[in-house]
Write a protein that binds this DNA or RNA. Sequence first.
RNA 1: GUGGGUGUAGCUCAGCUGGUAAGAGCACCAGGUUGUGGCCCUGGGGGUCGCGGGUUCAAAUCCCGUCACUCACCCCA
Length: 424
Amino acid sequence: MKPKTNIVAPRGMYDLLPDNIRQWHYVETIARDLFARYGYSEIRTPLVEDTQLFARGIGESTDIVTKEMYTFNDRKGRSLTLRPEGTASIVRAYVEHKLYAQQPLSKFYYAGPMFRYERPQSGRNRQFYQIGAEAIGSASPLVDFEVVDMVHSLFGQIGLRKHLLIVNNLGCMNDRPRFAEALRSYFSDKLPMLCPDCRERLEKNPLRILDCKVENCKKLAAGGPVTQDFLCDDCKRHDTVLRQLLSRAGIEHVFDPRLVRGLDYYTRTVFEIQHPALGARNAICGGGRYDHLIEELGGPPTPATGFSLGMEATLLAMEKEHVQPMAEPAPHVFICSVDEKALFEAAVLAVNLRSSGLRVELDYEGRSLKAQMKLANKLRSRFAVILGEEELAKLSARVRDMSTGEESVVSLEGLAAKLVEVAK
RNA sequence: GUGGGUGUAGCUCAGCUGGUAAGAGCACCAGGUUGUGGCCCUGGGGGUCGCGGGUUCAAAUCCCGUCACUCACCCCA
């Protein structure tokens, strides 16, 4: 009787097997290198935070806070939450360590898992991985520009070609309520024509009506007010400068006055990067300015801007565009042993060859030479080194080039040097 | 939380109007070569047909429930 468990990974969470992890390293490596060039330093914060941090930072009434958080009490009864996003934690650390006192502008990036209790879907999981960056301490549109350029360039360097940058300006804390009010009054007499979801949005967050997917709601929204009409002079200037910079730098983008991002803390600049080959959840990156969050979380009034990209969605986009990272390097050498004595020597030889910098595989089980050769072939090893009675008697090994089949006998003494020479 | 689709070997899937249908390809192992891979040939191991219940003489096949995966909605990276 085989013991059988039905324990599998939790819903919406999954294992990354060696075959997939290469792609993750590929993206992470490019990102780290690129971020360093922009002067952003890595920061790591706990995966778990005080529940209040997210409730206050993201917004008490948002879906993320009301129904999507993994929240639990620890043994002392403190309410803790698995982080559903990265920005709040970064800001918490910024305030806690008084980093504003050290330099006027702090530039961070982070990478790691986030958790939201949602129904899984294409490009969306309960544990998902984000790479993000935050520039805290400047209200300048130049910083928005830098951040947008940075993540846009990242996708380009990864090898994506079809990603699409969309920008908008939501206005500052004075403009937003005026705009929301205008939307309410515009839609108030059209209530029966809106979808049920939008009727609720009208109460809770009227901006969201603008990106409803229902055809009729779209039509109605098209005739309604847009953010641009309610921007104050400063916001207008901010918006203009950002878009001019993007154009001057040759960064393709579209302006979409209906783009609204979900998180409550966004002010002024918001942007999104989408990929057309994805499913319904087509954003691979979202971001924007949040000029009041630092103050909201107990710090001095400090403007900030940033973004976050979804790793799974990015990987999906890479797949659609057939972007393939380099293959896992194949072994230089596979050591085959013909008998038990050779097997012993093979283990010792492996140490020697590996210390010379070679990638070395060998058989551990004393299988047939044929089986070992098959394995060497399957692993795409450049050479097979064969140890047998004949070879060992002469303190030598047989070296077989796996692509040509040519063989030569080399003394054990000179083997490492010889292989290093030809295997490179 | 709501709705649709799908769960058969390690992988991709066929079988599904109930009755020699537990199958294929790939992968794996062995042999064809007493110490030599790729191609080819032969053989072999491997499956509670997601799980539970029901209908029936008989269920992978029909019905119900459940779990999981998946796509979409809400929301969002």
